[in-house]
Design a protein around this nucleic acid. Structure first.
Length: 556
RNA sequence: GGCUCCAUAGCUCAGGGGAUAGAGCAUUGGUUUCCUAAACCAUGUGUCGCAGGUUCGAAUCCUGCUGGGGCCA
C-alpha cells in the first residue's frame, strides 16, 4: 500500500481525462503526464507541464491550453482544493492533505518493512563488489566500494529486486605467487635472517603479522624445506589467512556476501576452455603472432584483446570472461559490477564479452567508484600502496567508528571524488551529518519513553485530523515519499539519495521539535496523535539508516 | 596521444530539460523556568569553467575548448 503513489496516479488520471474532455489531444497523442514537486510550496503540492507539451499537438498557446484543461478538470475526484495556472503554462495543484495522516497507521503497521515496494518486480540481479585481491588489507577505495555496494544491495532489495551479493576471489593469478614470496620474506625476517623484500612483493603490515605467526607456530621448520614446497605452503597459508581476515573485516563493517566465488574454481571445474571454445565457435576469435585474440572491436572496443598469449598462458581477461559467463548461466538478468576508477578501461572489453556470449550489452552494468582522498588536520593524508602505508578499513573503523565511515562513503555521488574528512567524521558535533540524523532518532526515543513515564497513552487509536500544524504536514509529506525515494535510488543506482532523504527527514523532525511541544497534558488527544506521528518518523529514520548500514541508537 | 570522471556560493557537495538554482559548513545575530542546545530560528552569498548548437524553455542534452583527478599506450 502506497498512499502517495495512489494520490499521484489518481491526479494524473484526472488530468488525462480533462485533456481528452477539453478535446486538446486524443489518448494516443497524449504524452505521459509528468507531475513534479515544485521547489516553492507557493506553487502547490504538484505541478504539471502538460500544457507546454501539448502546445504543438493542440496548436495553441500553453496558457490557453492550461485554461481549457483547468475548466474541464474535476477537482473533487482528484482530491484537489485549488488549481492555478502560473508562469509559462504550469498548472499547479494544491491538494486536500487530509489523507496524509492516514499514512501513520500504515507506517506503524508495516514497521521495518515500511518503504519496501514491488517496484523491481523480482528482477534477478547480482551485484559483485569489493572483490579485493586476497593479498593485503582493505583500503579506502575498497571501503567506499563496500559501503556503496552493500547499501545499493539493501536498497535494491527494498525496492523489490531479487539481489545476490558476490565477492570474486582472485586466487589464481600471479598476485598469489607474489603473496607467497612476500610471506616467505617476512617469515625469514621474523627468524632474524637477512632477507630483502622481493621486487613485486606486498609490504602491508598484515604480511609481517603472517610471518610472525608462522614463526610462532612452526619455528624454523619451513626455512630449510625445498623452495617449491615452501612457496606452496606459504601460498596456501597466506590465502586462507587473508580471506579469513577480509571476511572478518567486512563483517565488522556490516557487509556480508551471499557468495564468495573462487577464480581457481573456474580452472578446477573446467570452465575456461568451453568459454574459449564458445567464443571461437561464434567466430569472435582469431590467431595472430602465436596468440589467440578476441575481436572486441566488433563491439566497440578500441582494439582487439589477447586471450591466450604466445607462451600459452591466459591473460586476465580470459578467466574473467568465463566468470561472467558463469554468472549469466546462473540466471541473473542483470549483473552489476562495482569497480574502482582505476578499472574503468576494462569496461569496453567486458561489455564486448557479454555481447559475444549472446547477451545485450546492458546486461552488464559497471558502477565506477571514484577515488577517495583522506584529510586530517586540513591536510591530505599521503598514501602509498607499495610501501604498505595505506590507511586500512580496519584502522578507519577504529579511528572514526563504523557508522560515520559507512555514512560518509555513501553520502556523495559515486562518480565524484570523495574527500573524507577524518576530523569531521570523528567529531561528535552538529557538523557531523551522521550524528545529526541519529540524534533525530534518539530524540524521538526519548520522547516516547518520557511519554510512558509521564503516563501518556502511546498506543491505540488517535485522531489524525489534529495534526494540522505546518511542521506536521511537512513531516507527513516526507514520510510518504519514502517508498518512492527507495525505488528511485534503486532504479538509478544512487544510494547517496538515501542519505539526502534521511538528512532532510531528520532536519524536518528537529524543526518540528523546536516549534511544537509533543507531550502536553493540556491537550491529551493531540499528544496522542503527535506520539503516533513521532513513532512513524522513528520507524522511517531507522529504516533509512538501516538501508545504508548505519545504526539507529535510542540514546546518545 | 586515446579513454574516462569532475568543474555549481568562501569550503564540501546536491540538483541530470522547466518557474526566483539548493543543502551543510564557514560569517553575523538570536532562542533553554518547557519532551536531549549533538537542536532550532534569522542572516548574505552565485558570469552554474568558456564558446557554439538543439529546444517554447539548458546548470541539466549535443559538439568543441580550457583546467583538474584517474586509467591505458
Amino acid at each position: 500500500m502506497n498512499i502517495m503513489q495512489d494520490i499521484q496516479n489518481n491526479l494524473k488520471e484526472e488530468i488525462k481525462q480533462a485533456v481528452i474532455k477539453a478535446d486538446l489531444a486524443t489518448a494516443e497523442q497524449l504524452p505521459d503526464i509528468i507531475l513534479e514537486k515544485p521547489k516553492d510550496s507557493a506553487h502547490g503540492d504538484y505541478a504539471t507541464n502538460i500544457a507546454m507539451q501539448l502546445a504543438r499537438i493542440a496548436k495553441k498557446a500553453p496558457r490557453q491550453i492550461a485554461e481549457e484543461i483547468v475548466a474541464a478538470f474535476d477537482q473533487t475526484s482528484a482530491s484537489v482544493t485549488k488549481v492555478e495556472i502560473a508562469g509559462p503554462g504550469f498548472i499547479n495543484f494544491f491538494m486536500d492533505n487530509n489523507y496524509l495522516a492516514d499514512l501513520i497507521p500504515v507506517i506503524l503497521k508495516e514497521g521495518e518493512k515500511y518503504g519496501r515496494s514491488t517496484f523491481g518486480q523480482g528482477h534477478k540481479m547480482q551485484v559483485e563488489f569489493v572483490s579485493a585481491n586476497p593479498t593485503g588489507d582493505l583500503h579506502l577505495g575498497h571501503a567506499r566500494g563496500a559501503s556503496v555496494g552493500d547499501s545499493l544491495c539493501n536498497i535494491l532489495d527494498a525496492a523489490g529486486y531479487d539481489v545476490e551479493r558476490e565477492y570474486y576471489i582472485n586466487d589464481a593469478g600471479n598476485q598469489i605467487n607474489n603473496l607467497a614470496i612476500s610471506i616467505q620474506a617476512r617469515y625469514m625476517q621474523a627468524l632474524g635472517k637477512d632477507w630483502p623484500m622481493p621486487e613485486d612483493s606486498y609490504r602491508g603490515k598484515d604480511i609481517i603479522a603472517i610471518g610472525e605467526d608462522l614463526v610462532n607456530s612452526y619455528k624454523d621448520e619451513w626455512a630449510n624445506k625445498p623452495e617449491a614446497e615452501q612457496l606452496a605452503f606459504f601460498r596456501e597459508y597466506g590465502l586462507k589467512y587473508e580471506l579469513k581476515k577480509l571476511a572478518a573485516d567486512l563483517e565488522a563493517f556490516r557487509v556480508s556476501f551471499d557468495h564468495w566465488f573462487s577464480e581457481t574454481s573456474l580452472y578446477d571445474e573446467g570452465k575456461i576452455k568451453p568459454t574459449l571454445a564458445l567464443l571461437k565457435e561464434k567466430g569472435h576469435t582469431y590467431e595472430e603472432d602465436g596468440a589467440t585474440w578476441f575481436r572486441t572491436t566488433d563491439f566497440g572496443d578500441d582494439k582487439d584483446r589477447v586471450l591466450i598469449k604466445n607462451d600459452g598462458s591466459y591473460t586476465y581477461l580470459t578467466p574473467d570472461i568465463a566468470y561472467h559467463k558463469n554468472k549469466l548461466d546462473r540466471g541473473f538478468e542483470t549483473l552489476i559490477n562495482i569497480w574502482g576508477a582505476d578499472h574503468h578501461g576494462y569496461i569496453p572489453r567486458m561489455r564486448a564479452a557479454i555481447q559475444a556470449l549472446g547477451y545485450q550489452a546492458d546486461t552488464l552494468e559497471v558502477e565506477i567508484i571514484q577515488m577517495v582522498n583522506l584529510f586530517e588536520n586540513g591536510e591530505k593524508v599521503k598514501m602509498s600502496k607499495r610501501t604498505g602505508k595505506a590507511v586500512t578499513l580496519r584502522e578507519l573503523m577504529e579511528e572514526v567508528g563504523i557508522d560515520a565511515v559507512r555514512y560518509f562513503f555513501v553520502m556523495r555521488s559515486s562518480d565524484s571524488h570523495l574527500d573524507f574528512d577524518m576530523d569531521l567524521a570523528r567529531s561528535e558535533s552538529n557538523d557531523n551529518p551522521v550524528y545529526y540524523v541519529q540524534y533525530a532518532h534518539a530524540r524521538i526515543c526519548t520522547m516516547l519513553s518520557q511519554a510512558e513515564e509521564k503516563g501518556f497513552a502511546t498506543d491505540g487509536d488517535f485522531d489524525g485530523s489534529l495534526l494540522v500544524a505546518e511542521k506536521e504536514e511537512d513531516l507527513l509529506k516526507r514520510l510518504g515519499e519514502f517508498p518512492k525515494v527507495i525505488a528511485d535510488a534503486a532504479e538509478n543506482r544512487t544510494p547517496h539519495r538515501m542519505t539526502q532523504y534521511i538528512f532532510d527527514l531528520a532536519s524536518t523532525l528537529h524543526s518540528f521539535y523546536n516549534a511544537e511541544k509533543v507531550l502536553d497534558a493540556d491537550h491529551p488527544e493531540r499528544t496522542k496523535a503527535r506520539l503516533a506521528l513521532m513513532k512513524a518518523v522513528r520507524v522511517t529514520i531507522a529504516n533509512g539508516l538501516n538501508l545504508i548500514g548505519v545504526s539507529a541508537p535510542e540514546k546518545m
